[in-house]
């Protein structure tokens, strides 16, 4: 019997629990020649704010041991540019499109969310409150509970779309943020964003990134992410989407086991663009081997 992999994330019906992590899969077309997008659980596109932005200076990324530091700085086409350039492409596929949104002010977050409310083909919004690489706003919303509450509440009032704030990992108590998101009416939460980090060159005495610091992603952060997902999943009833260093079906199964109802593949797509699809097949095989009929039977199977 083929296990049923379908899952519902706060109103977003997915055929399997594996999505792409924002910022690691472009807007879809970049990988469409290499990966059958229809086989993904959902596509989460790179962060969109109100207007076109250019992002940070270069160098923007640096490899670390089993990880990647990035300070791309959220360059993007803005709402209108994204809708014009990418939505017609994305609508051709039978896959939920989750738009990751960000802003420099609460007003900007609200306006971006409101604009997407009327765009056909948008399944939900992931809110980036935790980009470590934007000077104004963004990271602050993710690490100050009062600011976080204000921005999530304001966005909730501006959209009927499924709403999924993406939590920052660098907070003292992740459960507080998870509960706050739930109390503000979020339909799901996702975590973790990349972890603030840095890398330097001892010969030049210079930082490896033009932005000096960046966010660490990749296998290096997986154990950190796993703990935070476990803590967040115990704190709320809304679905949790777990991510951070997932590169295999085994990694994904760990996140599902500690309570995530879906997962996202991020940095691993850069080296193997078909990672997400391999994760889907690996989960299916694992469930079949364990005689589990649905992925829900595995979610929270952790025995602490």
């Amino acid at each position: 019997m083929t296990p049923n992999l379908s899952t519902n994330i706060g109103g977003i019906q997915m055929k399997n629990p594996v999505m792409t992590a924002s910022g690691t899969f472009g807007y879809g077309p970049e990988y469409a020649e290499l990966v059958d997008l229809n086989q993904l659980g959902a596509i989460v596109v790179k962060g969109i704010c109100l207007n076109e932005t250019k992002g940070n200076q270069t160098p923007r990324t640096a490899e670390a041991a089993s990880g990647l530091l990035n300070a791309i700085g959220l360059p993007g086409p803005g709402v209108a540019g994204f809708v014009r350039e990418y939505m017609p492409f994305l609508r051709q596929y039978d896959v939920p499109v989750i738009v990751n949104i960000w802003g420099k002010t609460i007003e900007e977050y609200v306006e971006v969310a409101a604009r997407f409310d009327s765009i056909p083909g948008v399944a939900g919004l992931e809110v980036n409150v935790s980009c470590p690489n934007i000077k104004e706003g963004s990271a602050l919303f993710g690490t100050d509970l009062k600011m976080f509450e204000r921005v999530v509440k304001a966005i909730r009032n501006a959209t009927r779309l499924p709403l999924m704030p993406k939590l920052a990992p660098n907070v003292a108590d992740i459960a507080e943020y998870a509960r706050c998101a739930e109390a503000c009416g979020a339909d799901a939460i996702s975590l973790i964003n990349s972890f603030p980090a840095m890398s330097v060159n001892i010969e030049t005495r210079r930082p490896m990134l033009a932005n000096k610091t960046g966010g660490l992603s990749g296998p290096a952060i997986k154990p950190i992410a796993l703990r935070l997902v476990w803590l967040a999943a115990q704190a709320v009833k809304i679905p949790v989407v777990g991510m951070g260093g997932i590169a295999s079906a085994e990694d994904a199964l760990e996140f599902l086991m500690v309570g995530a109802r879906a997962v996202a593949v991020g940095t691993a797509s850069f080296i193997h663009p078909d990672t997400a699809l391999k994760v889907v097949r690996g989960i299916e095989q694992f469930l079949a081997e364990k005689n589990l009929a649905t992925v829900a039977d595995w979610v929270g199977a952790f025995d602490p």
Partner: peptide
């Protein structure tokens, strides 16, 4: 020969500045 990440246009690591009218773009 810029440092490269994904190689397919998704990660925006390898950008350089090119002319775009009077302005520039990545």
């Amino acid at each position: 020969d810029n440092n490269m990440g994904c190689g397919v246009g998704a990660c925006l690591t390898c950008v350089l500045k090119v002319k775009s009218g009077e302005d520039w773009t990545w």
